[in-house]
Amino acid sequence: MATSFPVEPRVIVRSPRTFIERLRGGDQIALLTTLVCAVTIIVVVALIVVELWMNSQPAIKAFGWHFLTSSTWDPNAEKFGALPFIYGTCLTSALALLIAIPLGIAAAIFLAEMAPPQLSNLLTFLIELLAAVPSVIYGLLGIFVLVPLIRDCLVPVLVKFFGYLPIFQGDFYGVSFLSASLVLSVMVAPFIISVSREVLLAVPVEQREAALAVGATKWEATWQIVLPNASTGIIGSVFLALARALGETMAVTMVIGNTPKITASLFSPGYSIAAVIANEFAEASGRLYVSSLIFLGLVLFGLTIVINAVARILVLTTTQRSA
């Protein structure tokens, strides 16, 4: 037998059995601590809902559903209606998506299907950095760069060719629905691009090859085969972008004009839910005024939750199907 090593006495032969010792081992403590933290998150979300609900009670009691359909916002007379803000939020978000979706998806197709991988990775990296730019900076750029640009270049063109449309009538002062929508579209485009690119890349290569093998052109393979495969995920990315646009505060506040009115013209200044809260909350006096603003917050919260839920479900179904 190869006995090159002596048998040495065993170091620790003691079973740690008491409760205290097992606690010191850390398992129970760790389980408990992490569980408490996980539950804390649920509590935080519950608190958000409860706080919004409780604090908007005065407004709910005073106005009821009428709050959502009334277009009067008069703090002096204590008359509050949310319609101009809901209108502004929905209009700017929808218009922003209308601009960002085609551009974003086209760019995503380019990055996923055509660009050489190195270029694609580099551009995606840059786009993801752009998604990280704080919204107040987009607002700053909106006020001082985009608005003058729109006034001097875009508006004359629009008026000249489409001036007969009701949406392009009236005077343009700079701050307006149009400016807010354009700033928003610049903000959500990186979002749509990076998520859509990922979804497109998740489509199996075999799908492309099968289409190309029966004689489809690259574009036909992309448009007819790859895109439908990825459509649910892309729609999901659009919904995520929508949720972001709806809740976006600073950039919109800085360029929308902060005037609570409902007009068809995109040139006219307006207001959005997030913007009115940002502008008036700190200075709001009177219980009903504050409560109305919080009620607006509750409406916004509800809107984004529904949109987010839809988006999650859509993204989830595609990624799971491809996995």
Binding site: E51, L52, L246, T249, I307, N308
Partner: peptide, 15 residues
Amino acid sequence: VDLLNGVPSIVIGIV
């Protein structure tokens, strides 16, 4: 957690 991630920042401010 997803829900919390989707809450607009202005609403977090209110809370």
